[in-house]
Amino acid sequence: MASGIWAVAETRNGEIRKVTYECISEARRLADAAGTDVTVVLLGKGVADAAAGMGAYGADKVLVADGDDFEPYLTEIHASAIASLAKDAAPAVILIGASSQGKDLSPVLSAKMKAGLSTDCTAFRMDGGKLVATRPMYAGKVFVEEMAKSETHIATPRPNVMEADDSAGKTPAVETVSPEIGTKMTEVVELKADQSGKVDLTEASIIVSGGRGMKDSENYKILEDLAEVIGATVGASRSAVDAGWRPHSDQVGQTGKVVSPNLYIACGISGAIQHLAGMSSSKVIVAINKDPDAPIHAKADYSVVDDLFDVVPALTEEMKKVVNA
């Protein structure tokens, strides 16, 4: 039977993305439960030096392929490389972060390996050496447990859900590999960097979101001010995006981004089911809404029933005290 838990590192321009460490730590927890070991696949350019540090998160072994072929990321090249490495090893599980890259890579890898795929998972456990993946469906209105019929089960954990834990204290065996990369079919013309320089919503640990209650694009200034003080990224409901107040990249929800920050502060958002779909796995939810019957209050850990234009600036001042204390 297949054994071994793999985690695929995500790299960009020589940097290891945060979701990588979440995957390695989760792989460690699963490997401990199943009595097996953790292998990390590290593809990229200028990334080899990061391999040793992956032991802290629980890697027993790191397979490194470092070179021009692996930067920038190309779907078919990365999928071919991972499939070729996994062919003989036949791991029981391959974890890939459900970032935009992981969501792109995993279906192609799944088809190449003919391995079952569970996307955007929020919890895992092992049962008799097989992975049981928990994931929301129907926008979080139900949860399912999925298992693969194939030898290998590929699963993508939702970013920010699994805890990255750097206390594993392993010294991994680092092995340089030359995987097959197949035929190149796509190319990256360019990566247009977002000028705002803000942390992406899917990676943010705190989000301050504004909805139709903001009334105007200019009023987002008060959310930006709060965000600045507490290190948050500003998000929006679809109504705010449709009104042209915020770009679509800020939209949280079923047709926007699915986020799992430690803290989600919803300001002037009613809590429509499609909005909840994008943020209900947040660890702590705060609702600031003057309507006591707004559905967002029922989902919130802390509800403030009042005018956001009074509460938010006051909260910013209070947070300054807390942060500077």
């Binding site: 079952g116 569970s118 929301p136 399912v144 693969a148 019929k149 029922a298 919130a300 850990d301 509800s303």
Partner: peptide, 18 residues
């Protein structure tokens, strides 16, 4: 290649405070 083995309502969030 994958099958749903169990479907449940979403986990309840603990009641919040106003």
């Amino acid at each position: 290649l994958v099958e749903v083995v169990k479907m449940t309502p979403p986990p309840e969030r603990a009641a919040g405070q106003v």
